[in-house]
Design a protein around this nucleic acid. Structure first.
Lengths: 112, 112
DNA sequence: CTTGCATTTAACCGACAAGTTATTTAACTG
DNA sequence: CAGTTAAATAACTTGTCGGTTAAATGCAAG
């Protein structure tokens, strides 16, 4: 599933840093690799993971590959999380209301 | 980092299904395992991953372990995604405006 | 067409993930 | 205390991940 790839891609700090860098503007592989201490092939692999997750696209420009963000996949992940978050919080609200109800009944009994 | 664990935990479909099940209400390990074809120890490991990611808590109840959601970690992940999404989209909006500007200049030149 | 530059691919390694079965722990029950 | 049930842990297998170095590819330019 697409979400598998998206979340897996986001689970790595180097990849999140690459995405953050790309949010500032497109960049070549070399530029992206520069701030990290790992080898270029390692970065290349990270970029492939991000591309497979549809988080970026790479396009040729002369002998360079320029990377750009693609927000759509992030939207998918965000939607999943937000949908769940709403469900969870509704659930907690209901539990909360229930506990308050219980408590008010208890104090009805206890205060007489 | 905490985000590493959270996203990694969410990257597995079995674990997302477990979370979805838990959104309907707390459940024991056995209940959670029931719909899946994998062994109980496998589920137990998934639950440990979810617990390490702070997505659930497990508490003893007699000889059972009851699992419940913890929305906080999901909030952290959601915040990261949303913050980035906003940055990305701002960037795309700027690019879009720039491209429109370019185009209007072109038609100024081209239409005379 | 050779040289040089940017990047990818190949081959390999150690660590970890996800699954298995078998064993152990923990708590209740007779 | 022995037996049963619920779950975790141990030990193991297999596959994937993140990294490496070395070789190959793609493209541009002399």
């Amino acid at each position: 599933m697409q979400l598998d790839h998206t979340f897996a891609a986001l689970a790595d700090p180097t990849r999140r840093a690459i995405l953050a860098r790309l949010a500032l503007g497109e960049a070549t592989v070399g530029e992206l690799a520069e701030p990290f201490e790992v080898s270029l092939p390692a970065i290349s692999k990270h970029l492939k993971v991000l591309e497979t997750a549809d988080l970026i696209i790479r396009e040729k420009r002369a002998q360079q590959r320029v990377c750009k963000l693609r927000p759509e996949a992030l939207k998918t992940a965000s939607d999943w999380i937000e949908q769940n978050r709403r469900m969870w919080e509704e659930r907690f609200d209901r539990l909360d209301a229930y506990l308050r109800e219980l408590q008010s009944k208890e104090s009805d009994n206890g205060n007489g």
